[in-house]
């Protein structure tokens, strides 16, 4: 096959040229530079040492663990929200529908600020939780809450169109065969929305892994306790420890790439079920 299928429309060369140029300038060259720097300026032994310090390992555990928990919480409550928004009519539904994107639209620093404040000793929630010995601020729990907040729209927005386009007839068929609603949901609806749910879960997880702004306010800065990986990179940079920062950044990038490929595969797999 030729490189390009013939088309009567003009502008292939120009748009290809500009797209590749801009993509290289903004994304590929800077990302490549990071990898280049790591490869040329440190041996594998040094890279491994810097990327696997106790502090780094702990930050990976916290980041991945908290992201997984947050994505799981969202899988449950996001499905609930999506279901209620698509199936039921109630006062304020449209407002709620619009508000689902709020965590996405709200700058992360503001999200972090307001969440940290809510759970602080004097905050609207903290004033009840702290006396009950539920510490959220400056703990891994705080990290989970921040990550749940920012990841929520991904699940709801992935599920909503799928729920809306569910064939009613299938549910009706299930009902005529004697299945109750719960049984219908578990055996008929859930399997149908599962690909979308997994996609949403993966998107929410991927977003949480890299998240920085909303977490730093609420998590504080306690090495080995509530320190997420992006914060560790940031602190290494502040200390002018560039090699340390780069080593951990490469670990994160590699993980991001794996996730990106994984999400692509999941979406391709999921799209098979759409039609």
């Amino acid at each position: 096959m030729a490189f390009k299928k013939p088309s009567p429309l003009p502008g292939f060369g120009l748009s290809l040229g500009y797209t590749v140029f801009y993509l290289s300038l903004i994304v590929l060259i800077p990302l490549g530079a990071l990898f280049c720097r790591v490869v040329t300026h440190m041996g594998f032994a040094e890279f491994w040492k810097l990327a696997t310090t106790d502090r780094a390992i702990h930050s990976y555990q916290l980041t991945f663990g908290a992201s997984l928990i947050a994505a799981a919480i969202n899988a449950v409550f996001g499905t609930l929200l999506a279901w209620v928004l698509t199936r039921y009519e109630f006062p304020g539904r449209r407002l709620l529908d619009a508000l689902v994107d709020f965590p996405f639209a709200l700058p992360t620093a503001v999200a972090g600020l307001t969440l940290a404040d809510l759970f602080s000793r004097q905050g609207w929630l903290g004033r009840y939780l702290v006396p009950a010995h539920i510490e959220v601020a400056y703990t891994p729990l705080g990290v989970v809450i921040a990550l749940t907040f920012i990841g929520m729209p991904f699940i709801v927005r992935t599920l909503q169109p799928v729920l809306e386009n569910l064939e009613r007839e299938v549910e009706e068929a299930s009902a005529t065969l004697g299945a109750g609603r719960l049984r219908t949901f578990v055996s008929v609806i859930l399997p149908t929305i599962m690909p979308a749910l997994i996609t949403g879960f993966a998107l929410s997880f991927a977003r949480a892994i890299g998240e920085y702004g909303s977490v730093v306010f609420i998590a504080g800065n306690k090495p080995g306790k509530s320190e997420i990986t992006p914060l560790l990179i940031f602190l290494r940079l502040e200390e002018y420890d560039y090699t340390g920062a780069m080593a951990i950044a490469v670990v994160m990038l590699l993980f991001s790439f794996v996730l990106l490929i994984g999400i692509n595969l999941i979406e391709r797999w999921a799209s098979r079920f759409q039609n």
Binding site: L23, G210, F234
Partner: peptide
Amino acid sequence: LLLTLIDLPFSVSPVVSGLIYVVL
């Protein structure tokens, strides 16, 4: 491949996004 590369910045942590320019 091009489509995936265009999406790439979405999956890069903001801190790493800043870092790559510091490296450059």
